[in-house]
Nucleic acid binder design. Structure first.
Lengths: 207, 207
DNA sequence: CTATGTGAATTTATTCACAGCA
DNA sequence: TGCTGTGAATAAATTCACATAG
């Protein structure tokens, strides 16, 4: 193992690898080669090996990778063994869908709190998570929740982010279609569904 | 204007610029400088200018960009003036939220069809779109729908994609947490919500 | 004097090719 | 012999610096 600054693109791919490894384990495999893992995920085998090499290389030459061990390592690198709980703000259509989304569990992630401003929604439960009033956002600090998902209307996104950061949140997954300005120490990943759909036509030949 | 191979990253940013321009127009502006646009979107001004320069540069030196004109140009480049209709397959929690999502309109996109296999859902209407039986997927060809959104369970994603491609679909926005294998001519963009949330902890210092 | 447009320099990421270990 | 791990080569994207047009 040697020190390297880890490319951001490698970090982006780690959850992809993790997903592949966990799927492979589900199917009863214990070992996997970079080639098989790559094919399963639609990437190149040398990319896989290069990415793992930044962390020291986890495989056995001539054999491949031990799935469980590698998955554990990736979880550790991604800090998924420490940070697990996330809060969701904005329980509209999209927010409700995210609350009910079953895919977080495989990464050890859990939506542990949900907030909304509508009195009609506050108090209800979705997927066993009780919806709290948005004024209670500051409780996140003592609950040690450092991740949040924003699914409020665009105009409320920046203010929501400000409150979340004041409550100690360090990472934000933003579903609102706008840029959110945050201090350097806070990481924001924005998912804009419409924007992703909007760039598909570029790849479609006219006619 | 000169010929250049356009970087994929530039294409990825074009909808971001478009969103910014449309917002700016909403606020009553007619012109905008690369600096102002960049600040609004959280990018650098030289990045904006460089990106536009691949298409020939649309601005006026000393003045800036005419918002309407530039927005039209970007729409044209992205092929958003030709391709507008999309189909959605899988009307579960996430699919319903996507159907009701108001953000597509600003890009001129429209979800014009929705499909599901559940008899309970078929026939219902969400957001004025009638849910059809999934066996009717092949009608997409004569309806000239070339874009599709997949929000079915993971195990059904590949088969759904195969059917869509058989029906003439050329671009797929995939919400299922898995790799989808497609012919080269078909473009797939995968959004994996859990994966995006899963890489946030990496950026959060322990403790 | 202002703000664009763009070659050139730099940084970052991907791909290759093969050495090294089981 | 098979598959990993990694320097080196290549490719791509970003950043810079400034000439250029209004």
């Amino acid at each position: 193992m040697r020190y390297h600054r880890i490319p951001d693109e490698t970090i982006r791919r780690l959850p992809v690898y993790l997903r592949g490894l966990l799927s492979s384990a589900e199917q009863g495999h214990e070992r996997i080669s970079s080639k098989d893992l790559a094919e399963f995920l639609g990437v190149n085998s040398w990319q896989v090996r290069k990415d793992f090499s930044y962390f020291g290389g986890f495989g056995t030459r001539g054999v491949g990778y031990e799935i469980d061990k590698l998955a554990q390592q990736i979880k550790k690198i991604l800090n998924l063994d420490n940070v697990k709980k996330a809060a969701l703000v904005g329980v509209g259509n999209l927010g409700s869908a995210v609350l009910a989304y079953p895919g977080f569990k495989m990464f050890g992630l859990e939506i542990a709190a949900a907030f909304d401003i509508s009195p009609k929604k506050v108090g209800k439960k979705i997927n066993n998570v009780k919806i709290e009033d948005a004024s209670k956002l500051q409780t996140l600090r003592r609950r040690e929740i450092k991740l949040a998902i924003i699914s409020v209307p665009r105009d409320a996104a920046q203010k929501t982010a400000d409150s979340l950061i004041k409550a100690g949140v360090k990472g934000i997954l933003n579903f609102s279609p706008c840029y959110i300005s945050v201090p350097k120490k806070v990481k924001v990943i924005t998912i804009d569904i419409a924007m992703d759909l909007a760039r598909l036509p570029y790849y479609i030949p006219a006619g």
